[in-house]
Write a protein that binds this DNA or RNA. Structure first.
Lengths: 184, 184
DNA sequence: CAGACTTTTGACCAAATAGTCAAGTAGTAT
DNA sequence: ATACTACTTGACTATTTGGTCAAAAGTCTG
């Protein structure tokens, strides 16, 4: 099944934005990777910004959705969640895509801000749902799932940032362990 | 007392990098703000990168140092620390400068990575010292100050990111309150 | 004052980069 | 087959941007 050009473009743009940042990314390089020409991209996206927004709206949002939907299926969702969070450095080699794009774009462009806020809300809801299931299964005691989700995300994002400065897997795991114990 | 050109340049560059990101920042604009010409800047810094590194090494590092040295002087350092952390959104209107520059540059340039790692270590030490004093004053129970500092920084950084997506001061305060209670 | 060193000027350059467009090709429905 | 639409080509443009340089101005010291 062949992916259409639009999708290939979003794939490649995601990689490039993820590594180089939105502003640091180069349209020509993205095009080269996909193997198409300028005009072809501008047929689907009227500007670099549109492409950037599409990447956030479709790819980043979807990545989060898929990642945490799997966790929700587990019969031990809370511990599965932390397994997944602990393994993040393996997949998120350039940091958290949502955090990274937010740090860069939220203060610069209002459309990015709105969109990334909405992606974050999805993220928060996904984690809150996992907590809800964990509570109903008796895996963890009751808590305010929304606030707890927020704290978990905050600590996780920060720990990931520290990991990328430190490159110390143990320190990263330590922080997540402390976090995990807090609610069980 | 007149600031010399080099210092003015670092001030202006810091503002610009902080708002626009390193890659998004524009040398010409920085120069315009200071009111000097290209050659003058290239007399002090041999490239944009040198300027960026100087900003991280001198300004960002110093900001952190000053901010948390004051906390250390308090007789209730732990609660003062959280007061300061809670007030961060007022001063850090474009996010945490260290986090922001790290997210952008750590994966792109090894010199930035080394430098920002070292700034982060200073940050961690500053927080660990505050915890140490809080313990010795009996303000909080004993704990591993290094690990605790790391968790506090992680949660704080993440909470700040969420704040800038949400713009909800209460949610931000809530997360920091939960964090504060955890160690006292 | 002379000579040396530091700092500043401002014009200039080369490369990079987002975006345009007219023309062509392929696919699809009638 | 015809005609209409969707997609692609590739050359072209305009602008931005980091960086260079030789000469001028300013400053400091013996």
């Amino acid at each position: 099944m062949k992916k259409d050009t639009r999708e290939l473009l979003i794939d490649s743009a995601f990689s490039s934005f993820y590594r180089n940042g939105y502003q640091g990314a180069n349209i020509a390089e993205i095009l080269k990777e996909v193997g198409i020409n300028k005009g072809s991209m501008y047929h689907f996206f009227k500007s670099k910004k549109e492409l950037g927004l599409a990447v956030a709206d479709e790819r980043i949002r979807k990545n989060i959705k898929v990642k945490y939907e799997k966790v929700l299926e587990s019969q031990k969702p809370y511990s599965t969640l932390f397994e997944v969070l602990k393994s993040s450095p393996d997949t998120l080699v350039f940091g958290c895509p949502l955090n990274k794009m937010s740090q860069e774009m939220v203060y610069i462009d209002v459309d990015f801000k709105k969109l990334l806020s909405s992606v974050y809300k999805d993220f928060e809801k996904a984690i809150a749902n996992i907590l809800l299931k964990a509570i109903s299964l008796g895996e963890i005691p009751e808590c305010d799932t929304e606030i707890t989700a927020r704290l978990i995300i905050a600590s996780y994002e920060g720990a990931l940032m520290i990991y990328h400065l430190n490159q110390d897997r143990n320190q990263y795991a330590q922080v997540l362990d402390m976090l995990e114990k807090q609610f069980q």
